[in-house]
Design a protein around this nucleic acid. Structure first.
Length: 414
RNA sequence: GGAUGGAUGCCCGAGCGGCCAAAGGGAGCAGACUGUACAUCUGCCGACUCACGUCUACGGUGGUUCGAAUCCACCUCCAUCCA
């Protein structure tokens, strides 16, 4: 990982160039002016996060990395927690209305966010990042004042042309949700007035909302305000990257164990490895180019590196090392280094039932189907009889069980 | 407030009295091919049972019927049109 201070004090490169060459940028406004601004002074900027869960997930990763790059280039990050807006729910690109949240839940989530964010951006020292919560100004808003001071600047006609609302016109959109754009625009205005923030960044799905704020500042305050949105990580079939069977890929070790997290990146498709490295790690571009030069099995080395780097950033060195070691043990044969998991069961337990016990099958029926499909191997020999007991397969009480190609673990019966 | 249409398995979606644990697609899991990739192909895909089979499921509650996801009544929620 690059040293923050060294980068910050070294010969400064324009942050926009850094983000551009790594492939972050999707859209900007007044790009030339923004470029000059970023090149001439330390610019306070912000990105908003909805505290709708108690962990960030991979979808937040890119804006967070962008914040880190900007901070390293000498700009000052503000993390806006949407404690107030979360009580409304962002309608953007959603087919259903979101659940509204209580203040307690939101506060709990904010704490969790800060902890995770501090791995990427610094909350102390010079240019420290700051956390702000829009509940602080949104909750005390007076409706009439808001309509008069802010409402006048918004054209409903214009709002309706925004893609995020248009797609909702068929399904239905409540007035509550319709106001989300005004509130988010207001956030930008407040932050501009209080902290001199001139730039909002975010995912491209936030483009309309970010623009609303920048426009509001330009019209109401006659001041420059800029917007920047980032690419979304997509699989080559166009689906969002980071979806797993269990839902999102979380940055929280409890929700997505580091090993699983590591494996996700170990398995990204070849074509996306370079992109992931540029967007999700601080690796040098030249090194990335070198590692991803060959589109064949040499790609595996690049994927190992990617998985390691990303896990290191998110979970720290110990977790990254462990994930790597477990991977070696599980996939490079052997198994001596695999830690054995103790399971309370007799050697006479049927294999099918054992699979259910260890959580590798949801029901005995599924376990039997797995065996019928030839997916289960114990100590190297395939289980072929659905009624087989563990003791039929091995005389040992400690053995290696494989399910398919990707699951391999050692168990000890007690 | 009125009229009409709708609610089906993890998701989308067909079924419209017995042949329905419910077509088709997606997701998922396993197998083949590989490089722990992508794409492709094959199988599986409610629970329990070795199995015959049994149970639980088509928004909710009742009803008609030998038999209901399918018909009827009421309720809940959603959409469209009219006011």
């Amino acid at each position: 990982m690059a040293d923050i201070k060294k980068v910050a004090t070294g010969k400064k490169k324009n942050a926009l160039d850094i983000l551009k060459e790594r492939g972050f940028i999707e859209q900007t406004v007044y790009e030339d002016d923004l470029y000059k601004l970023l090149g001439s002074e330390s610019v306070p900027f912000y990105a908003g996060f909805d505290p709708t869960a108690d962990s960030l997930h991979i979808g937040h990763y890119i804006p967070v990395m962008a914040m880190a790059h900007l901070q390293r280039a000498g700009h000052k990050p503000y993390v806006l927690i949407g404690g107030g807006t979360a009580m409304v729910g962002d309608p953007s690109y959603r087919t259903d209305m979101r659940q509204m949240m209580s203040r307690e839940t939101i506060n709990h989530n904010v704490e969790a966010f800060k902890k995770q964010l501090s791995r990427f951006i610094s909350f102390s020292g010079e240019g420290a990042a700051k956390l702000v919560n829009n509940a602080d100004w949104l909750l005390s808003l007076n409706y009439i004042d808001f309509l008069r001071d802010i409402g006048v600047y918004f054209s409903v006609n214009k709002m309706l042309t925004a893609e995020c609302f248009r797609s909702r016109m068929e399904k239905g959109l409540s007035f509550l949700e319709f106001n989300y754009m005004l509130m988010q625009g207001y956030d930008f205005l407040v932050l501009n007035q209080r902290h001199g923030i001139k730039l909002q960044i975010g995912g491209n799905d936030q483009w309309a909302n970010i623009l609303a704020g920048a426009d509001l500042i330009r019209r109401k305050e006659q001041q420059d305000a800029f917007a920047m949105t980032f690419k979304l990580l997509l699989n080559s079939d166009g689906s969002k990257m980071g979806k797993t069977a269990k839902g999102a890929l979380w940055l929280d070790a409890e929700k997505t164990p580091p090993f699983e997290f590591y494996q996700y990146f170990r398995n990204v498709e070849d074509a996306k490895v370079g992109e992931c490295m540029r967007l999700l790690t601080f690796m040098e571009l030249s090194e990335i180019a070198e590692l991803t030069r060959h589109m064949d099995e040499r790609m595996n080395a690049a994927k190992e590196r990617l998985a390691y780097e990303v896990t290191l950033l998110v979970h720290g060195q110990a977790a990254a090392d462990e994930a790597q070691a477990r991977t070696k043990a599980a996939f490079s044969g052997g198994g001596g280094e695999l830690p054995a998991e103790a399971v309370k069961a007799s050697p006479d337990i049927p294999v099918a039932e054992f699979l259910v016990t260890i959580g590798q099958a949801a029901s005995r029926g599924e376990a039997k189907r797995l065996i019928e499909g030839g997916g289960i191997t114990i100590d190297g020999s395939k289980v072929t009889d659905i009624a087989a007991k563990v003791s039929d397969m091995t005389a040992e009480t400690e053995f290696i069980l494989q399910k398919g190609k990707k699951f391999r673990a050692k168990y000890k019966l007690i």
